[in-house]
Write a protein that binds this DNA or RNA. Structure first.
Length: 852
DNA sequence: GACCTGCTGCGGTATG
């Protein structure tokens, strides 16, 4: 893209000389670099005090671009009141502590090489208390920190003094942060900064996203009238990624997610590359694949493991080994999605469903540092449906389509935390705070009513909890402003700041043991290997074995918050299981999968086995077009099954399943249970569903009508454990329940217990409590995916295609195989037989049976 | 005997 100055086209080098002070231009030249276009553009906008969103792929000097204007300003003392300034000139916010440290280290080089008169420091939870205290008195020019630390800094009594001189705020990995409650908290911090330092410009650094305007608005203080957008700079796109799908010689499984069939082929790809990242979707799968690779690792390649449940020290070791080029492969989860570029990765393997085009592109981007090198990636589908999903993702990548998550909207529990934090500094005026909060993009639509109920919750606990002293956190001064009820509450706030709420975890401690049975003596001291979720350990009996931290361990017993284990040499261990989040199949990829299905001409590019599968489906039942939804009924054993294919992801299907069974119950169809996967939903019962439909007793249009969302959702949800879990998170974030208290850590069980208790009290006495509403909002957008379900029901209205079949169809096999594998709603007490896979597949693929 | 799903991230301060 040519650059123009006063109408004349100029080269980048010339532009660099124009915009960059000589000192900087020389330094660039000494590196053998030319300033990139986006770096110069950002300099230009920053010099006019404009806030900017910079979207660029990794490896393009994006971070340096973000800091360049600050370095120049600080060097040239364009900043007039520099001597008067007490606080930092530039604030850098990263979602990862390690990234803040890494960026600081990278920035120190130009600063020291050019001998710039600039101080820069990091401040995270790892920073020593003494350094933090010193930083308050004498802050650096550039402070690099996390969203949580910003909240803490803003809660200091001298926050306004500290930030008055702030000139720039750099927000790294913005696309990732806005999609979480951490981003919501950060947006409130930014709104405060906008009041303390109205002149500070913002720089957002982001990967490519689906909707840049959403991020541009997120960056800016909003006014009620119309959205205010930051400037936008698009960095040059990198070379297109070279993505292939594993063409396996093996049989691709009908269901399951292990991808074990492909292990030799994955190993071969690792052997042929210099350095490979193997991304998987879950921690337990990372453990499993790592084990499998080791057993076939004939060449003894150095292969490592990296996921979020491993101890930090273990992870740092792997990272260091990677950076110094000692490893040939790392099996990892999304821990390595973001941040630092570790080493010279030249191949990315993604095992299992990609789930989303943007997520996949982010991962693949890890495979090239240099902009002009195409990244190489290999997708390994774990089952037949995933072949379709991989192809959808491959197509999306080729077209540069994005499906990144939009910013999370204003949450009431996060607001409650912020309101409390606001009172920690100086007393605040409610109306001033309300206006400030509304200038944060996620809260632009917040009503005064909602704000007031949050404020009253923080002040008193709300109507139902008013009589308990401990929930009264604010007092009103005679002039109407609000202050903390007690200084102790400020300390409580600081200890519990942040929006990350973890499941109850136990540390896994490797100890020594002697003897057998009752005489077994187990040591108490040992090395911490990492953490597993409490509920998993609760299922273990002493003597059980499981794989963790890439070794087989024997569970010995509990010691307070530790699970004691010893080394074991048994075969068939249990795999540790974590109850983590679930990434749903993105709507965008779902659409593409439906497109692929609906165009038989394109099936040629699919592997033979997958093509045959779809071919038989087409012959025996039907392969739906992109717009319609296929519903099939068929008998099997003593039951009748109804299978539908919305392709909307497991979460939405679970909710649909729950609602459908309730509706079928009312229609006297006697449903017994349902099971869902990412693509389909199966419901079954004892009555002849085909007959009910053909005789008009059961109308599919009625069954799938959108009004079902109003049906029983509320009553069902209120009773469910899911809602209690969600409430626990909101209650912790809002400060109703403390996770940490001076002097004592709470166990997960204690927290859960008090949370359940409060939940029941509120449900009975104050069903409209802010936190119940917050929890409902989270459940609706998260675990239940109600919006998506609603959109789907709208989409398929009047477009249901129905087939009454004699027997199971090929497309139904994967979801049918899920039966017996998981706990089934509605049929908890009935013993379920798992479907015998072979007979099910034979029946589905038989083509001489009669067809309706 | 084959089969097994479910991510990541942060976190205090004043005083002795």
């Amino acid at each position: 893209m040519p650059l123009r100055v006063d109408g004349a086209e100029i080269t980048l080098a010339e532009a660099g000389r124009l915009a960059l002070p000589e000192l900087f231009a020389e330094w660039f030249a000494a590196q053998g670099w030319q300033p990139r276009r986006h770096q110069l553009e950002l300099l230009g906008l920053a010099s006019r005090g404009l806030s900017t969103l910079l979207i660029a792929p990794t490896g393009g000097g994006k971070t340096l671009a973000g800091f360049l204007p600050s370095l120049v300003e600080l060097t040239e003392a364009r900043d007039h009141d520099q001597n008067a300034r007490v606080g930092p000139h530039t604030l850098y916010i990263s979602p990862l502590k390690a990234l803040a440290v890494d960026v600081a280290r990278n920035l120190e080089r130009p600063v020291s090489e050019m001998k710039l008169p600039i101080t820069l420091e990091t401040r995270t939870g790892d920073t020593s208390a003494s350094k933090r205290a010193r930083q308050r008195l004498k802050p650096p020019d550039i402070l690099m920190t996390t969203p949580e630390q910003l909240a803490l800094l803003l809660a200091l009594p001298d926050a306004s003094r500290l930030f008055k001189g702030l000139r720039a705020i750099v927000l790294d990995e913005l696309h990732a942060i806005v999609a979480s409650k951490r981003g919501v908290l950060l947006s409130l911090g930014l709104a405060r900064l906008a009041r303390l330092a109205p002149e500070a410009r913002r720089v957002g650094l982001s990967a490519t996203v689906a909707d840049p305007d959403g991020l541009r608005a997120w960056l800016m203080p909003q006014t009620p009238e119309q959205p205010v957008l930051a400037e936008l700079i698009m960095g040059d796109a990198g070379a297109n990624a070279n993505i292939s799908i594993l063409a396996s010689q093996e049989r691709v499984p009908w269901a399951g997610h292990s991808a074990r069939y492909a292990m030799p082929e994955i190993y071969k790809a690792i052997c042929e590359a210099k350095m490979t990242l193997v991304f998987v979707n879950t921690r337990s799968q990372a453990e499993m694949i790592f084990q499998d690779l080791w057993t076939i690792n004939e060449l003894n390649l150095p292969i490592a493991l990296h996921h979020g449940s491993l101890d930090v020290s273990q992870r740092r070791k792997v990272e260091a080994a990677m950076a110094s080029g000692q490893l040939r492969a790392v099996v990892c989860t999304s821990t390595l999605d973001l941040g630092i570029d570790w080493g010279e990765v030249d191949l990315v393997i993604n095992v299992g469903a990609p789930k989303g085009a943007s997520r996949l592109m982010q991962r693949i981007g890890r495979a090239s540092h240099r902009l002009d090198d195409p990244s190489r990636a290999l997708l390994v589908p774990a089952n037949r449906f995933e072949v379709l999903e991989c192809q959808a993702a491959q197509g999306a990548a080729a077209e540069g389509q994005q499906d990144s998550e939009p910013p999370v909207g204003g949450k009431l529990d996060v607001l409650a935390q912020h309101v409390l934090g606001s009172a920690c500094g100086e007393p605040f005026d409610a109306t001033v705070l309300f206006e400030e909060v509304r200038s944060a993009y996620p809260y632009r639509g917040l009503t005064r009513d909602n704000f007031d109920s949050v404020l009253s919750f923080v002040a008193t606990g709300g109507y139902a909890l008013k009589s308990y002293d401990r929930y009264a956190k604010l007092r009103q001064l005679p002039d109407g402003r609000w202050r903390l009820a007690h200084p102790k509450i400020g300390q409580q706030y600081r200890l519990n700041v942040g929006t990350i709420v973890e499941a109850a975890m136990l540390k896994v401690k490797l100890v020594s043991a002697r003897g057998l049975g009752d005489r077994r003596l187990v040591g108490r001291g040992g090395k911490i290997l990492g953490e597993v979720e409490e509920w998993f350990v609760e299922q273990l009996a002493p003597g059980d074995t499981f794989v963790f931290a890439s070794q087989v361990l024997r569970f010995e017993g509990l010691d307070d918050l530790d699970a004691l284990v010893t080394r074991a040499y048994k075969e068939d261990p249990k795999i540790p299981s974590y109850n983590g989040g679930k990434f749903p199949l993105s709507t965008y990829l779902a659409e593409r999968v439906r497109e692929i299905l609906s165009k038989p001409d394109g099936w040629r590019s699919l592997p033979d086995q997958v093509r045959d599968w779809l071919g038989v489906q087409d012959y025996k039942s039907l392969v739906p077009t992109a717009a319609e939804m296929l519903v099939e009924t068929f008998p099997r054993g003593a039951r009748w099954y109804l299978v539908c294919y919305p392709f909307e992801g497991r979460l939405a299907h679970q909710t649909l399943g729950m609602l459908l069974t309730r509706r079928l119950e009312r229609l006297r169809a006697r449903p017994l249970g349902f099971v869902a996967n990412e693509y389909a939903l199966a419901v079954w019962g004892t009555r002849d569903l085909s007959l009910m439909i053909s005789s008009g007793k059961l109308s599919l249009d009625f069954l799938f009508d959108e009004d079902m969302l109003g049906d029983d959702l509320d009553s069902w949800l209120a009773e469910s454990n899911l809602m209690k879990r969600t409430f626990r998170t909101c209650a912790i974030i809002a400060g109703l329940i403390e996770r940490r208290h001076p002097g004592k850590e709470k166990t997960g069980r204690q927290v859960t217990f008090s949370s359940d208790l409060i939940y029941d009290v509120l449900r009975e006495h104050e069903p409209t409590h802010v936190l119940l509403r917050a929890a409902w909002d989270d459940a609706a957008t998260g675990l239940l995916d109600i919006r998506r379900l609603g959109d789907m029901l709208k989409r398929v209205k009047g477009r249901l295609t129905y087939r009454a079949l004699d027997a199971v169809s090929p497309l139904a096999v994967p979801v049918m195989l899920e039966i017996g594998r998981e706990r089934i709603y509605g049929e908890a007490h009935e013993a379920l037989f798992a479907e015998a896979a072979e007979s099910l597949i034979d029946e589905a693929m038989q083509i001489n049976s009669s067809v309706h």
